[in-house]
Design a protein around this nucleic acid. Structure first.
Lengths: 248, 248
DNA sequence: TGATTATAATGGTTAAACCATTTTGTCCAG
DNA sequence: CTGGACAAAATGGTTTAACCATTATAATCA
């Protein structure tokens, strides 16, 4: 199946050959690659070099490696994991301005909520109802349960992305939300007012989606994100004791 | 909720430590990591294991490795390369439906164009004018210059993302557009009609942005993407000789 | 029969050596 | 003094051989 590896970096050649075999369909998800010591002979290379190649393939999300007898490298069905991870790295290192993040969320979550409203099935509505039950439960417990409330909030956003039935929106939003916690930690100091406002936003949003009202869902999502942003700006203002930056 | 507590793999620990140092700012872009044989002592591991870690870090886009004396591992400024690569893998394995791509573009490019219309400066308008001059030049050359026209089209989209002054929209759109070419190759068979429609779309779009008309810019961008999508569906229909899938 | 233990196959790690590439400095011819 | 050839050194890339850790399966025993 594999031929001798020749290139300036041998491991790269191995990576390319295996990836090509997967993309060509010669290797399908669930298939098991030969054991390392066998592949070493097929590629005519050393085990160290082969393992560097396997490491790259693993990180690409193309294979999964398990220990023990009957273990080894299995071809994996590609998912959005790697895109999410690299997107997350980009966002964390690019020092994205808070304004940009809020603006992006406002636009994208607006789009997603509108799509979700158009496509929500009765089952989706049921999922949202259950989540809102949880949210109300924590809301009624007051600021003590703030963290739990935020987690439910996050799950509601992810659920809306799923309901939108669009894989790209789903993993883009997942990447964004995976990187919001640092912002939360820095800015969010909860109060009963904030908790109540957030809860009402979620009520409006899920109600609009369940009613299939795309325009209202978009407006509710945007209002929710915008409120969140204004609140963070206010906290920043209090923290720095300077005049707030002019809104653009 | 919890991840595995024990780190059975040494190289993963090395990856995590280096990545954390970069994210924490202890290592900045351009900094050079110690030589392999030095790091081996710092991490108290073997060279093979260390190199597996370096391979992963390299593939993550966090470091760049050069040969020879004065070579070694340099910390890299993260770009959209890795996102693009993993996105390309997803698309090549058709894990992402064409409909999702078109829908995402329609929503996001609509948002971006609306923002661009609100924020375009006279200099930005000048940039767009120059690009449209190029586009007209290739348009007048007819279908022969189709590829050149497509390239200008792409630059116009990227310029709009820049004008939107939002870093997230910019790199998300760049990642998407970096992965559109394969779709073009598969589906696009140009004709004078398609060329003209595309040119007119761009005229409408840039005119709206230059005029500062956000709503018109959004509509123009969405119409442009939607037309593109419909055209690809039509080609697919001709190719498969089956009835087109029901629009959702 | 069921629990325990041994076995073997697999990935994970270590160590030491050598090869290939590239920069840098040195030396010699002109 | 200059310029080019060449040697030296530092670095990543590769090989080899052995051992350790994990785990499914087979063998064993109460």
């Amino acid at each position: 199946m594999f031929k001798k590896a020749t290139k300036s970096r041998v491991f790269q050649d191995v990576v390319d050959q295996v990836q090509q075999a997967i993309l060509d369909g010669q290797l399908k998800a669930g298939d098991r690659l030969p054991a390392e010591r066998e592949m070493v002979e097929m590629f005519q290379t050393s085990r160290g070099t082969l393992r560097e190649a396997l490491r790259v393939l693993e990180h690409k999300g193309l294979i999964e490696i398990r220990l023990g007898v009957a273990g080894g490298a299995m071809v994996k069905a590609i998912d959005t994991e790697q895109v999410s991870e690299s997107l997350a790295l980009l966002m964390r290192t690019q020092a994205i301005p808070l304004d940009d993040l809020a603006e992006f969320r406002e636009g994208v979550e607006g789009n997603v909520s509108a799509l979700a409203a158009r496509r929500a099935t009765p089952e989706d509505g049921e999922d949202l109802r259950r989540l809102m039950d949880e949210a109300r439960h924590f809301y009624e417990q007051g600021v003590e349960a703030w963290q739990s409330f935020v987690q439910v909030d996050r799950r509601i956003h992810m659920t809306l992305a799923r309901i939108s039935r669009n894989a790209i929106y789903a993993f883009v939003l997942k990447s964004v939300h995976d990187n919001i916690p640092p912002y939360y930690e820095r800015y969010l100091q909860s109060s009963t007012t904030v908790l109540e406002e957030n809860y009402r936003d979620l009520c409006d949003l899920t109600a609009a989606v369940q009613a299939g009202d795309a325009a209202a869902a978009r407006r509710a999502a945007q209002a929710h994100v915008r409120r969140f942003h204004r609140y963070m700006l206010a906290v920043e203002h209090r923290l720095t004791e300077k005049s707030p930056p002019p809104s653009r």
